[in-house]
Design a protein around this nucleic acid. Sequence first.
DNA 1: GGTGGGATTAGCT
DNA 2: GCTAATCCCACCA
Length: 191
Amino acid sequence: MKKTVSKSFFCKPTIELAKDLLGMHLCTENKQGITIGKIVETEAYLFKNDPACHAHKGRTKRNEVMFGPAGNAYVYLCYGMYNLFNVVSNKKGFGEAVLIRALEPITGIELMQKRRKTNNIKQLCNGPGKLVLALGIDQTHNGNCLRTSSIRILKNQNSKFQIESSSRIGISQAKDLNLRFTIKDNKFLSK
DNA sequence: GGTGGGATTAGCT
DNA sequence: GCTAATCCCACCA
């Protein structure tokens, strides 16, 4: 039933990919077990006209994964404490990515609860820093391919929903761009 | 109910 | 030294 997406899935404009990722399943696997969450909130980060994007100022050691091939994971340490998870989009060398902001827990909920140290299901994955913890993502996943490594994007066949777009959250620059995409009325969105 | 500050680290100026 | 794509808890109303 569950299949990894095709390579070409990631090779499209970042905004389209951000919308297409909604409803897909994000799966991680390690010795502790398997955890899966449905993507319910994303944000597009563009190379052009987007000062909030890491790649905007040029290529550095930190963001070099964003300039690699589409479909790789970009894991970035923010505020010194939280890793954020991004999907590299478009084509190699574009320097664009989609930030995954929220998930709905599907599989391995007990393991997520243990990692997050809370039993509140709604609190498990409703923020970019939280879902990274819940799925056990860390710096070792940086640059991994999302089709073949221990962290994968899976197709979710029966998903019907409406997409809403709005301005991005939690950043200080380019707030006026409508690059945040959510599944309408999903209970697991923050707030 | 809502708001404000602190934790903590890599990279840039 | 300052900033950053965050989260949590204490405090106030």
